[in-house]
Simulated assay, not measured.
Amino acid sequence: MINKICVFCGSSFGSNELYKHEVEKIGRLFGENGIELIYGGGNSGLMGALSKTTLESGGKVTGIIPKKIHEQVDHIDLTELHIVETMHERKNMMYNLADAFIALPGGIGTLEELAEIFTWQQIGYHQKPVAVWNINQFYNPFRDLLLHMVREGFMKKEFLENLIVDDNLEEIMMQLKTYNPSQHNKWEKPN
């Protein structure tokens, strides 16, 4: 069951109005379908729009934010807010609370969170679904880099096939519900 989804996204809005519009769409979907949002606790940019829309749509929102960032940003009332000491604690708590993960457009922090949770899946720390909502083909360069890693022998194709990438939110939600990861040993030598 997918009841809690951790979303990685930007603390800025980006240069295309479409990003905010689509983030509000997923917030409404979460709120109206009883899916709890787990996220980094910020109130600016796409993160803020996502949490605000989820709450306004009747949903639950759990934020996890490091004390250093918490002291520097404005806040909204969330269903639950955890203030932790470090970024590592933040990510660990988000990862443990969530049933699945979706990356939306964002900056280097979003990319880092996506890469880390996908790495954890690859090495066997979890088998939860990881998805990329490829709004406006934002993640095409990232997908190209992953394909390059496969071609160059730094990633097994089977692991890349576990990553859900789509530009359609309804399709992503369906794939999260029906997710069945391929089981492979990262360190197994090819025949």
Rank of each mutant, 00 (worst) to 15 (best):
E17D: 11
E85T: 10
K128P: 04
N185M: 08
S182T: 15
N16D: 10
K4F: 02
G10K: 01
Y95R: 11
P105Y: 00
G41A: 07
E188P: 07
T53W: 00
T110A: 07
Y19F: 15
I164C: 05
H148A: 13
P181F: 00
I5A: 05
V61E: 00
S11V: 10
L114S: 07
L169Q: 12
E112S: 10
E71N: 14
I135G: 02
E36M: 13
L114M: 06
I83E: 11
K52T: 04
M1W: 02
G14Y: 01
W133M: 03
I65H: 00
V150W: 07
Q121C: 10
K157N: 13
E36H: 09
V7N: 00
L160H: 07
A49M: 09
N185H: 13
T86R: 04
K67M: 06
H70F: 13
A100M: 11
E36D: 09
T62W: 00
E113F: 02
V84F: 02
L114T: 04
E158W: 06
R90I: 09
K186H: 08
L78E: 04
I26R: 04
G31R: 04
Y95C: 09
Q183A: 12
A103H: 03
L114G: 08
G27C: 05
I64P: 06
L46D: 01
N33T: 09
T86W: 03
D167S: 14
I26L: 03
G41Y: 01
P66H: 02
K186S: 12
V7F: 01
G31K: 03
N168Q: 15
N134T: 03
L18R: 13
N136A: 14
V61K: 00
N92W: 08
E89F: 02
L97W: 04
M94D: 03
I65Q: 00
S44R: 08
E112N: 12
K52A: 12
S182Q: 14
G107F: 03
G31Y: 02
V132K: 00
T54R: 00
F118Q: 07
Q127P: 08
N43R: 08
L46P: 04
T178R: 13
G27Q: 01
V23R: 03
E112R: 07
V165G: 09
G10M: 10
D166A: 13
I83W: 01
